[in-house]
Amino acid sequence: MTRKLRCYAVALGVTVALTLAGCGGSDDGGATSANSKGLEKTTIKVGALPIPDPVSVYIAQAKGFFKEEGLTVEPTPITGGAVAVPMIESGQLDISQTNYVSTFAAVAGGKKIKLVADMYQAGANCFVIMVPGDSPIKTVADLKGKTIFVNNLNNVATLAVETQLKVAGLSKDDVKFAEKPFPEMGNAIKAGQADAGWITEPFITANQSANGFRKLADTITGQTEDLPIAGWMASEEWVQKYPKTLAAFQRAIAKAQQLASSDRKEIEAMLPKYTKIDAKTASVITLGTYPSELNANRLQKVADLMLEYGYLKSPLDVKSVIAAPASSG
């Protein structure tokens, strides 16, 4: 009796397994599927810094743009683009925020990374060089021989400052760059550790009001006007493995970027929810723009500047780094 039962159980198990396998086969064909959009992966982890740049992922989440695409997105705070690269490589994150200078340097160094969507483009006064109110430094030329704080060396910070030094007839050899996280720059400059700092929001506003700092120069002007800053990246392997998931993500993000760039109120409403920037600060800080299309021509400017200032050894064709959105869903 028991043996007979066991036989039935085995037969039943095999039948179920075969049926499931059959279903799996038809899934690949896209005829019937558990998720109506035929996504290879429906739940993804997306790394983002707790700053205004990646607001689109939180807007898309709040407005249900991901849900419409059949995607469940888990936004995960990260600490920086440098940590995010090993995270997308190991699969801890599916997609992550990155800045373009880091990405192009990493790609030139042999990393298999693809840009999948645009995120943030700097506008006037988004990144400025600041000095204490009573500083004798009045112009960029006065920075000769001085120490300037940047959040990261050999990155967008130093590149942006170098373009302004060039206008003033200086080069990176005329100043000293030192690394300091944005939250600590104000105090450290006041304590005399450096003479100036390359600062972004909300710290521009904070250093003006709490520390009496003044703006020495905008670094998003001239060569760096409308400089693309940050985008979304994934590993090359991930892009090849999950094309439909990627396309769904790209559509939802593009929609959110459009909303963000058309209505600043949408950004202001979202900032206090995923950053510690309160509503009052959110309404006064300087913000860049949120392009909804990943445009190779625009991004090429970043790679060209990197080449000109020695951040890249040889020219980089940005088109090769972009995972173009599939036009058909």
Partner: peptide
């Protein structure tokens, strides 16, 4: 980290 990025040293 979130508090630091939002300039909230108190938090």
């Amino acid at each position: 980290i979130q508090a630091g990025s939002g300039n909230r040293m108190d938090l």
